[in-house]
Nucleic acid binder design. Structure first.
Lengths: 104, 104
DNA sequence: TCCGATACCTCGCCTCACGAGGTATGGTGC
DNA sequence: GCACCATACCTCGTGAGGCGAGGTATCGGA
Protein backbone atom coordinates (compact mmCIF):
# COMPACT_ATOMS: atom_id res chain seq x y z
CA UNK A 1 0.00 0.00 0.00
CA UNK A 2 1.46 3.31 -1.10
CA UNK A 3 2.19 5.83 1.61
CA UNK A 4 0.22 8.73 0.17
CA UNK A 5 -3.16 7.05 0.50
CA UNK A 6 -3.07 7.95 4.16
CA UNK A 7 -2.69 11.62 3.44
CA UNK A 8 -5.50 13.70 4.78
CA UNK A 9 -7.01 10.77 6.66
CA UNK A 10 -4.46 10.47 9.44
CA UNK A 11 -6.00 13.11 11.65
CA UNK A 12 -9.32 11.32 11.67
CA UNK A 13 -7.65 8.07 12.62
CA UNK A 14 -5.70 9.60 15.49
CA UNK A 15 -8.71 11.47 16.78
CA UNK A 16 -10.79 8.30 16.63
CA UNK A 17 -8.11 6.42 18.54
CA UNK A 18 -8.41 8.95 21.34
CA UNK A 19 -12.16 9.14 21.34
CA UNK A 20 -13.14 7.04 24.32
CA UNK A 21 -10.01 7.16 26.41
CA UNK A 22 -6.79 9.17 26.42
CA UNK A 23 -3.54 7.58 25.35
CA UNK A 24 0.10 8.44 24.78
CA UNK A 25 1.70 8.46 21.35
CA UNK A 26 3.19 5.03 21.41
CA UNK A 27 -0.07 3.51 22.61
CA UNK A 28 -1.95 5.28 19.83
CA UNK A 29 0.27 3.61 17.28
CA UNK A 30 -0.46 0.22 18.78
CA UNK A 31 -4.13 0.95 19.06
CA UNK A 32 -4.37 1.89 15.40
CA UNK A 33 -2.45 -1.19 14.43
CA UNK A 34 -4.68 -3.46 16.47
CA UNK A 35 -7.95 -1.86 15.45
CA UNK A 36 -7.04 -1.90 11.77
CA UNK A 37 -6.14 -5.57 11.99
CA UNK A 38 -2.47 -4.88 11.32
CA UNK A 39 -3.05 -2.72 8.27
CA UNK A 40 -1.93 0.59 9.78
CA UNK A 41 1.58 0.15 11.11
CA UNK A 42 2.30 3.82 11.43
CA UNK A 43 5.89 4.93 12.03
CA UNK A 44 6.61 7.33 14.88
CA UNK A 45 7.82 9.94 12.42
CA UNK A 46 4.26 10.02 11.15
CA UNK A 47 2.31 9.98 14.38
CA UNK A 48 4.28 12.30 16.65
CA UNK A 49 4.23 15.24 14.25
CA UNK A 50 0.53 14.60 13.69
CA UNK A 51 -0.12 14.81 17.42
CA UNK A 52 1.80 18.08 17.61
CA UNK A 53 -0.26 19.45 14.76
CA UNK A 54 -3.48 18.39 16.41
CA UNK A 55 -2.45 19.99 19.68
CA UNK A 56 -1.39 23.16 17.92
CA UNK A 57 -4.85 23.26 16.39
CA UNK A 58 -6.51 22.70 19.74
CA UNK A 59 -8.05 19.34 18.88
CA UNK A 60 -6.13 17.42 21.52
CA UNK A 61 -4.43 18.37 24.75
CA UNK A 62 -1.43 16.67 26.30
CA UNK A 63 -0.24 16.11 29.83
CA UNK A 64 3.07 14.61 30.93
CA UNK A 65 2.91 11.63 33.26
CA UNK A 66 5.52 9.35 34.75
CA UNK A 67 4.24 5.79 34.77
CA UNK A 68 6.79 3.48 36.37
CA UNK A 69 9.75 5.75 35.76
CA UNK A 70 8.87 6.30 32.10
CA UNK A 71 7.85 9.68 30.89
CA UNK A 72 4.73 9.64 28.79
CA UNK A 73 2.79 12.34 27.09
CA UNK A 74 -0.86 11.45 27.38
CA UNK A 75 -3.24 13.00 24.89
CA UNK A 76 -6.95 13.48 25.23
CA UNK A 77 -9.58 14.91 22.91
CA UNK A 78 -10.75 18.44 23.53
CA UNK A 79 -14.30 19.52 22.85
CA UNK A 80 -13.15 20.95 19.53
CA UNK A 81 -11.46 17.62 18.85
CA UNK A 82 -14.70 15.75 19.35
CA UNK A 83 -16.46 18.06 16.96
CA UNK A 84 -13.65 17.77 14.43
CA UNK A 85 -13.86 14.01 14.66
CA UNK A 86 -17.57 14.10 13.91
CA UNK A 87 -16.88 16.26 10.86
CA UNK A 88 -14.09 14.01 9.69
CA UNK A 89 -16.32 10.98 9.99
CA UNK A 90 -18.89 12.62 7.75
CA UNK A 91 -16.20 13.65 5.30
CA UNK A 92 -14.89 10.12 5.23
CA UNK A 93 -18.36 8.77 4.49
CA UNK A 94 -18.79 11.23 1.65
CA UNK A 95 -15.36 10.57 0.22
CA UNK A 96 -15.63 6.84 0.61
CA UNK A 97 -19.02 6.66 -1.04
CA UNK A 98 -17.78 8.76 -3.95
CA UNK A 99 -14.75 6.56 -4.51
CA UNK A 100 -16.95 3.50 -4.27
CA UNK A 101 -19.29 4.93 -6.89
CA UNK A 102 -16.43 5.58 -9.30
CA UNK A 103 -14.65 2.29 -8.76
CA UNK A 104 -17.80 0.19 -8.93
CA UNK B 1 -13.39 18.30 2.14
CA UNK B 2 -9.68 18.85 2.42
CA UNK B 3 -7.68 18.51 -0.75
CA UNK B 4 -5.16 15.99 0.51
CA UNK B 5 -7.66 13.21 1.06
CA UNK B 6 -7.49 12.50 -2.65
CA UNK B 7 -3.79 11.88 -2.55
CA UNK B 8 -2.84 8.40 -3.58
CA UNK B 9 -6.35 7.59 -4.74
CA UNK B 10 -6.48 9.75 -7.85
CA UNK B 11 -4.80 7.22 -10.10
CA UNK B 12 -7.40 4.60 -9.26
CA UNK B 13 -10.19 7.04 -10.05
CA UNK B 14 -8.75 8.05 -13.39
CA UNK B 15 -8.03 4.48 -14.39
CA UNK B 16 -11.56 3.48 -13.42
CA UNK B 17 -12.96 6.33 -15.49
CA UNK B 18 -11.18 4.91 -18.52
CA UNK B 19 -12.02 1.30 -17.87
CA UNK B 20 -14.82 0.63 -20.31
CA UNK B 21 -14.25 3.28 -22.90
CA UNK B 22 -11.49 5.73 -23.79
CA UNK B 23 -11.89 9.42 -23.10
CA UNK B 24 -10.00 12.69 -23.31
CA UNK B 25 -8.92 14.63 -20.25
CA UNK B 26 -11.77 17.06 -20.10
CA UNK B 27 -14.30 14.24 -20.48
CA UNK B 28 -12.60 12.31 -17.69
CA UNK B 29 -13.12 15.24 -15.37
CA UNK B 30 -16.81 15.36 -16.22
CA UNK B 31 -17.16 11.62 -15.95
CA UNK B 32 -15.65 11.60 -12.46
CA UNK B 33 -17.87 14.45 -11.43
CA UNK B 34 -20.99 12.76 -12.70
CA UNK B 35 -20.18 9.32 -11.36
CA UNK B 36 -19.29 10.65 -7.93
CA UNK B 37 -22.56 12.56 -7.79
CA UNK B 38 -20.79 15.92 -7.90
CA UNK B 39 -18.32 15.14 -5.11
CA UNK B 40 -15.20 15.03 -7.27
CA UNK B 41 -14.89 18.32 -9.09
CA UNK B 42 -11.28 17.87 -10.06
CA UNK B 43 -9.37 20.85 -11.43
CA UNK B 44 -7.45 20.47 -14.66
CA UNK B 45 -4.18 21.15 -12.83
CA UNK B 46 -4.83 17.91 -11.01
CA UNK B 47 -6.01 15.65 -13.80
CA UNK B 48 -3.72 16.53 -16.69
CA UNK B 49 -0.50 15.95 -14.76
CA UNK B 50 -1.99 12.70 -13.45
CA UNK B 51 -2.68 11.53 -16.99
CA UNK B 52 0.88 12.34 -18.00
CA UNK B 53 2.18 10.37 -15.04
CA UNK B 54 -0.01 7.41 -15.93
CA UNK B 55 1.16 7.48 -19.52
CA UNK B 56 4.78 7.78 -18.46
CA UNK B 57 4.22 4.67 -16.35
CA UNK B 58 2.60 2.83 -19.23
CA UNK B 59 -0.82 2.49 -17.64
CA UNK B 60 -2.61 4.55 -20.29
CA UNK B 61 -1.85 5.45 -23.89
CA UNK B 62 -2.93 8.58 -25.68
CA UNK B 63 -3.81 9.44 -29.25
CA UNK B 64 -4.54 12.86 -30.71
CA UNK B 65 -7.82 13.34 -32.52
CA UNK B 66 -9.54 16.29 -34.12
CA UNK B 67 -13.24 16.20 -33.42
CA UNK B 68 -15.04 19.10 -35.09
CA UNK B 69 -11.97 21.29 -35.29
CA UNK B 70 -11.00 20.76 -31.66
CA UNK B 71 -7.86 18.88 -30.79
CA UNK B 72 -8.36 16.20 -28.21
CA UNK B 73 -6.02 13.78 -26.57
CA UNK B 74 -7.90 10.56 -26.10
CA UNK B 75 -6.62 8.15 -23.48
CA UNK B 76 -7.24 4.43 -23.21
CA UNK B 77 -6.17 1.84 -20.68
CA UNK B 78 -3.26 -0.42 -21.56
CA UNK B 79 -3.10 -4.00 -20.40
CA UNK B 80 -0.81 -2.89 -17.59
CA UNK B 81 -3.36 -0.22 -16.75
CA UNK B 82 -6.10 -2.79 -16.39
CA UNK B 83 -3.95 -4.83 -14.07
CA UNK B 84 -2.98 -1.75 -12.07
CA UNK B 85 -6.65 -0.87 -11.73
CA UNK B 86 -7.41 -4.30 -10.32
CA UNK B 87 -4.61 -3.88 -7.79
CA UNK B 88 -5.78 -0.40 -6.86
CA UNK B 89 -9.28 -1.67 -6.30
CA UNK B 90 -8.00 -4.28 -3.88
CA UNK B 91 -5.85 -1.71 -2.12
CA UNK B 92 -8.82 0.57 -1.78
CA UNK B 93 -10.88 -2.22 -0.24
CA UNK B 94 -8.14 -2.93 2.27
CA UNK B 95 -7.57 0.70 3.11
CA UNK B 96 -11.25 1.49 3.30
CA UNK B 97 -12.01 -1.43 5.57
CA UNK B 98 -9.15 -0.48 7.87
CA UNK B 99 -10.32 3.13 8.15
CA UNK B 100 -13.84 1.92 8.75
CA UNK B 101 -12.65 -0.35 11.53
CA UNK B 102 -10.83 2.50 13.25
CA UNK B 103 -13.57 5.08 12.84
CA UNK B 104 -16.37 2.75 13.86
C1' DT C 1 -18.86 40.94 -30.34
C1' DC C 2 -18.45 39.24 -25.98
C1' DC C 3 -18.58 35.40 -23.06
C1' DG C 4 -18.83 30.85 -21.34
C1' DA C 5 -17.86 26.18 -22.25
C1' DT C 6 -14.62 23.21 -24.22
C1' DA C 7 -9.85 21.63 -24.43
C1' DC C 8 -5.09 21.54 -23.74
C1' DC C 9 -0.78 22.89 -21.03
C1' DT C 10 2.98 24.27 -17.25
C1' DC C 11 4.98 26.28 -13.04
C1' DG C 12 5.45 26.89 -8.27
C1' DC C 13 3.58 26.40 -3.73
C1' DC C 14 2.25 23.84 0.14
C1' DT C 15 1.11 20.09 2.88
C1' DC C 16 2.35 16.09 5.01
C1' DA C 17 3.82 11.06 5.46
C1' DC C 18 8.03 8.94 6.39
C1' DG C 19 12.85 7.39 6.76
C1' DA C 20 16.79 8.27 9.35
C1' DG C 21 18.84 9.52 13.20
C1' DG C 22 19.05 10.74 18.09
C1' DT C 23 18.06 10.12 23.39
C1' DA C 24 16.68 7.48 27.44
C1' DT C 25 14.46 3.79 30.46
C1' DG C 26 12.70 -0.98 31.81
C1' DG C 27 12.83 -5.85 31.53
C1' DT C 28 14.69 -10.33 29.92
C1' DG C 29 18.25 -13.68 28.90
C1' DC C 30 22.95 -15.09 29.22
C1' DG D 1 27.07 -7.11 34.54
C1' DC D 2 25.85 -6.63 29.79
C1' DA D 3 23.65 -7.07 25.53
C1' DC D 4 19.36 -6.50 23.41
C1' DC D 5 14.71 -5.47 22.59
C1' DA D 6 10.55 -3.04 23.56
C1' DT D 7 9.01 1.12 25.21
C1' DA D 8 8.77 6.12 24.69
C1' DC D 9 9.88 10.52 23.18
C1' DC D 10 11.84 13.83 19.58
C1' DT D 11 13.46 16.41 14.97
C1' DC D 12 15.14 17.10 10.35
C1' DG D 13 15.17 16.54 5.39
C1' DT D 14 13.25 14.53 1.46
C1' DG D 15 9.85 13.57 -1.84
C1' DA D 16 5.35 13.10 -3.80
C1' DG D 17 1.55 15.04 -5.54
C1' DG D 18 -2.84 17.92 -5.61
C1' DC D 19 -4.04 22.48 -6.88
C1' DG D 20 -4.23 27.44 -7.85
C1' DA D 21 -2.84 30.57 -11.19
C1' DG D 22 -1.81 31.63 -15.48
C1' DG D 23 -1.45 30.83 -20.47
C1' DT D 24 -3.34 29.41 -25.36
C1' DA D 25 -7.01 28.33 -28.64
C1' DT D 26 -11.68 26.99 -30.67
C1' DC D 27 -16.75 26.88 -30.89
C1' DG D 28 -21.47 28.34 -30.18
C1' DG D 29 -24.96 31.25 -28.45
C1' DA D 30 -26.80 35.79 -26.79
Amino acid sequence: MKAEVLKGHLDALVLAALEHEPAHGYAIIQRLRRRSDDIFRLPEGTVYPALHRLERDGLVKSRWTAASGRRRRVYRLTRAGEEALAVRRLEWRTFSRAVEAVLA
